[in-house]
Computed example of a mutant assay.
Amino acid sequence: MTTPTPPLGCHHGLGSRYYRLCDRNEAWGIVLEALAVFGIVTTAAFMLTLLILVCKVQDSNKRKVLPTQFLFLLGVLGIFGLTFAFIIQLDSGTGPTRFFLFGILFALCFSCLLAHALNLIKLVYGRKPLSLLMILALAVGFSLVQDIIAVEYLVLTMNRTDANIFSELSVQRRNEDFVMLLIYVLILMVLTFLTSSFTFCGSFTGWKRHGAHIFLTMFFSIAIWVAWITLLFIHDVASEWDDTILSSALVANGWVFLLIYIVPEFHLLTNQRNPKDYPVEDAFCRPQLMKSGMENTAYSQQITQGTEPVWVENSCLELDDSLYAPYSTHFQLQTRNSKDFSIPRPQMRESPYSNYEGRKEGS
């Protein structure tokens, strides 16, 4: 049995499943391979830079997001690496890899963006932000749902042992199953997009720029997903270009993650902490009304013309611009109309013995 002649650009002895990596007649494989490799190198450089810059981040709330952003970069690294599974010919090895990792990696990236957006919503409204562990737990928790879905699908489809089932399926059936497997990821994308839009409504504008990075990233990601899903359901196009469509979507979305989210975030990472991004020296508290006459060690007051001051106590509540003035003095007066409760001063009475000289009257 003679071995097939390798195409132009490929060496003898190379398996036919790898021909797209070097075939000059199908240059899309070489182009996507080069973009994916460059993306892997760039992502690894960002991960290393993130570890170096940890100690230089002055803002504590930016530092809290660093573990989640590192997890996000791991997902981006996996997306670029998964591109090779779509360039290489579909078989028993690449089939399960495609169906299992595609949704998991994107779910991880979108979950990290969603957790970051939820934290930004609290910051733009001047509320107490999420903790480092809470942000990381939200990102991992949202992504685990897709992991469970992918595992169940592989177990049911492969029947535990039949790994060739993906290459044996018709192109239309395989593409339908592939998109159906990603329904949760699509929901996650829409949820992240809507959540990031709420970051534009807060009072502390310094955090809105971070929200804009997530918003634009999700906008272009949704556009890419709509495009490749639409092309995948066109039978004449999908039967010949399905691998090209999916591998191109991976590379394009990976670079969107890097250029629109990671690069701007790194640019803002080491910026000096801006006091205008926080309410009153990062204290997420406002005055709470107390009954007059109660004693406490910390008071604030607010003055209203023509009324009497009432002392109020500091209490950690949701900020309200109508009741809370950032960067004012520590003591404020809150007033109300009331009667005069001032205590009169004591007066000295004249003593009956003031004119006594020790003599009887008339003597």
Results as ranks from 00 to 15, higher is better:
M1W: 09
P7C: 09
L8V: 11
R24V: 04
A27M: 13
V31R: 01
V31P: 03
L32S: 00
A34G: 10
G39E: 07
T42A: 15
A44Y: 05
A45K: 02
M47L: 14
L50F: 15
V57F: 03
N61T: 10
K62V: 05
V65W: 00
V65G: 00
Q69M: 15
Q69I: 14
F70A: 14
F70M: 14
L73H: 04
T83N: 13
F86D: 02
I87N: 01
G93W: 05
G95W: 03
P96G: 06
R98L: 11
R98D: 09
F100I: 09
C109E: 12
S111I: 01
L113H: 05
A115E: 06
L123D: 02
Y125G: 07
Y125T: 14
L130G: 01
L133T: 13
M134N: 12
L136Q: 09
V140A: 11
G141L: 06
Q146S: 02
I149F: 03
E152H: 04
Y153F: 15
R160S: 12
T161V: 07
N164D: 12
N164G: 03
L169D: 08
R173H: 15
R173G: 01
N175K: 03
N175L: 09
D177N: 15
F178I: 07
M180E: 09
L181T: 01
T192Q: 06
T195K: 04
S197R: 13
F200R: 15
F204M: 07
H213L: 04
F215A: 10
F219P: 01
I222C: 03
D236W: 14
V237H: 04
W241E: 02
D242K: 00
A249M: 08
A249V: 07
V251H: 00
A252I: 15
A252R: 01
N253Y: 05
W255A: 05
W255S: 08
L258P: 11
L259Y: 01
T270M: 06
T270E: 02
N271T: 11
N271D: 10
R273T: 15
V280E: 08
P287Q: 01
P287I: 05
Q288M: 07
G293W: 02
N296E: 06
Y299S: 07
S300R: 12
Q305T: 12
E313R: 05
N314M: 05
S322M: 03
L323M: 02
L323Q: 02
Y324N: 14
A325L: 00
L333C: 07
N337R: 11
F341C: 09
S342G: 10
M348D: 10
R349W: 08
E350M: 13
S351Q: 13
N355S: 15
N355D: 14
G362K: 12
